[in-house]
């Protein structure tokens, strides 16, 4: 969002007052604020088209099933999914499963995001720690996290704790890497400038490195919406009694594809909601 232009934009002040050299300054076009590109306006056509695309896909799917081209027991059926949705909303089970997964994802997202970002930034403050940590980070990032499942179950049990832990582990790694990458890409001349101003490392960190890294941190959080949901759902696959991951997994074993799809759609809605929350956070912090 562009900052609203201040009053001076409308009536630019007179050219630079020069001591002893008034002439040349007057010839410069009076300083005027450059026009900032207008912020993306909300366009109703976008929403209409998005609805049309989704409706078209669902209609084609329904038509394919009804015409016998695609059997419902293999692919599910939109009208069947709709009935499942109505029933499970009425019984409260969909909301309960969604809420469980939402809690797990958000808790994991917050824990992983905060700790990962803090760790990534801290590695700038201590370059030695950064060097020591580098191969460890690479190794952690490369491990398929599903391989940690037995440890997570043993340490955190089969209740909500293990799902939060698996979401937190995934998001921690992403936030750690993005925050650290951001700090390492701060313009070296800015660091030189801060040194020439007499700034110590902590001041440089607070005033330059941290704000410069915000866009990187936000990009990491955006990726983490997906990773937090993966963490929670995978955790529910392994051992759970409720949650959307459990719903999808359990329905799958029963060949109840409409319920599988219902769970998937609920996860998509959740991803959109969480992404929207990150966007709001980004708007309040952005400076670009």
């Amino acid at each position: 969002m562009a900052a609203p232009p201040n009053n001076s934009a409308a009536s630019p002040p007179p050219g630079p007052a020069l001591a002893g050299a008034g002439g040349p300054a007057a010839s410069e076009n009076g300083p005027a604020l450059k026009k900032v590109w207008p912020a993306n306006r909300w366009d109703p056509r976008v929403l209409i088209l998005q609805c049309a695309v989704v409706a078209g896909l669902l209609l084609a799917w329904e038509a394919a099933v009804r015409s016998g081209f695609a059997p419902a027991y293999l692919y599910g059926q939109p009208s069947g999914i709709w009935l499942k949705a109505v029933n499970s909303i009425a019984s409260g089970s969909l909301l309960r499963d969604s809420w469980v997964t939402f809690e797990e994802s958000v808790a994991g997202f917050l824990i992983g995001g905060v700790l990962g970002t803090a760790a990534g930034l801290a590695l700038w403050i201590s370059p030695l720690a950064g060097k020591v940590a580098r191969p460890i980070i690479v190794a952690l990032n490369g491990v398929p996290k599903i391989a940690l499942a037995p440890l997570i179950i043993i340490w955190f049990g089969i209740d909500i704790g293990s799902k939060i832990a698996s979401a937190a582990i995934l998001t921690f790694i992403v936030s750690l890497i993005t925050a650290q990458s951001g700090t390492s890409r701060v313009d070296a001349d800015l660091l030189t400038l801060m040194r020439s101003l007499g700034a110590n490392r902590w001041q440089t960190f607070r005033k330059v490195v941290m704000p410069a890294t915000v866009p990187w941190i936000m990009a990491g959080l955006r990726l983490n919406v997906g990773f937090a949901l993966i963490g929670a759902v995978v955790g529910e696959y392994i051992a759970a009694k409720e949650g959307l991951g459990y719903l999808v997994y359990y329905a799958g074993t029963l060949y109840d594809l409409n319920s599988v799809w219902l769970g998937i759609f609920a996860l998509m809605v959740m991803a959109l909601v969480l992404d929207g929350a990150v966007t709001v956070l980004e708007r309040t912090l952005r400076w670009e």
Binding site: N6, S8, P14, A17, P31, L33
Partner: peptide, 20 residues
């Protein structure tokens, strides 16, 4: 104020020309 940028105190650098 002395050097001709009065009124721009609250502007962000992206809104200024290279000379400013």
């Amino acid at each position: 104020r002395s050097y001709g940028l009065a009124g721009f105190e609250a502007a962000k650098p992206s809104q200024l020309s290279g000379g400013m």
